[in-house]
Simulated scan of single mutants.
Amino acid sequence: MAEVATSARSSATPDQLLVVIDPVARRTDGESVRIAKDVLRAGAAHTKVCLPDDPEEFARVLERRGSRRPVVIGDDRSLLRTVALLHRGRELAGCALSLVPVGPELELCRSLGVPSGAVAAARAVLDGVEQRLDLMVDDSDGVVLGAVGIPPLAPRPAGPSRPPRPTRPSRPPVAPPGDAGAADGRTADGAAVRLPWLRTCQSFVRTLAHPRPARAASLPGSGPARLRVEVDGVTLVDLDQPVEGVSLTPGAPGTAEVEVRPVSVGAAASPLTARGRTVTVSGAHFRYRADAVESGPVGTRTWTVREGAWGLTLPAR
């Protein structure tokens, strides 16, 4: 890991920044990284740039930031990693994050209002204002900044029935080596001879002719699921009603918007919606996608909205 400290004077933003550059951002778009560093160095009173090589170094740099304001140059996963680390350290309340989005996954960054260009995002770091945002925290201490999507469970298809076991052919008698008069597989006195290698060859031929069918895999997103969805303790849908999917998105401050899409029979079924602070999904084991990360399978998961739990520097309105 390399660290570079530079100083610059600016009457607009007398600040101390810890700029942490994700290795994926460096590999993906080195030019945007360089531009962002130049703008930040020129605008902040003191800038320390860190180049961690792996998540462990990333965590150590963030932990040792002191009084510096952390600025992450990276994509959605970099932002999620930073928020998760600060959450586990119970440091989100007193720390305002800043972000310059660079990398392959930027959908979450854009949805939060972070400018997409390196120059505009770096200027927002220097001249923007902190906005407190809600955070969804699950019962395993995982964090969600944007949305949760629960795809339907795939029905386990019944594999093709196994073909009937072929009738074992009668083994042709084989003459022992050296018996020139037994070309038809019998000894001179007419007795049949069995050789061990013949059984192996016959078994191999049967395997090629009738291969064992592969076990059918369960693919997410190809069939209905039976899930119980509770919002603030009230059941929105129960296990007796199969659903095509469930989504949780940020709602009014301190709440999440919940939408359940029931399986339609004939006419399209209207989605079931609710708004609440705590959402519990349970039932058959399911996978879910929180922001850019897929998790599971789990049998139950509860998400709780924490109002204004973290701060992000965004352009002044």
Rank of each mutant, 00 (worst) to 15 (best):
R168P: 08
A225C: 06
L227Y: 02
E259F: 06
T273M: 11
V174S: 07
A269H: 07
S170T: 15
P172E: 12
P172H: 11
L227H: 02
F204S: 11
A274G: 05
P169T: 13
D238F: 04
G223I: 03
R171S: 13
V205K: 12
P213K: 06
A191E: 15
R212W: 09
A180H: 05
V243D: 01
R275L: 06
G190I: 04
P172R: 14
P177L: 07
A267F: 14
T200F: 13
R199D: 15
A180L: 13
V243G: 00
A182K: 01
T249C: 10
G276P: 01
P253D: 10
V243F: 00
Q241V: 14
A268Y: 02
A192L: 15
A214L: 11
A216R: 13
A216H: 09
D240A: 15
V281C: 04
S270D: 15
Q241C: 11
G245L: 02
T235E: 14
C201N: 10
P164D: 14
L208N: 07
T187V: 07
T273P: 03
A268E: 15
V281K: 00
V265P: 10
P169A: 14
G185E: 00
A192K: 14
D184G: 01
A217F: 03
P164K: 11
D179W: 00
V263G: 02
V234H: 11
W197C: 08
T255E: 11
G254T: 04
A209Y: 04
V279W: 00
V260F: 03
P173N: 03
A191V: 10
A214S: 10
P220V: 04
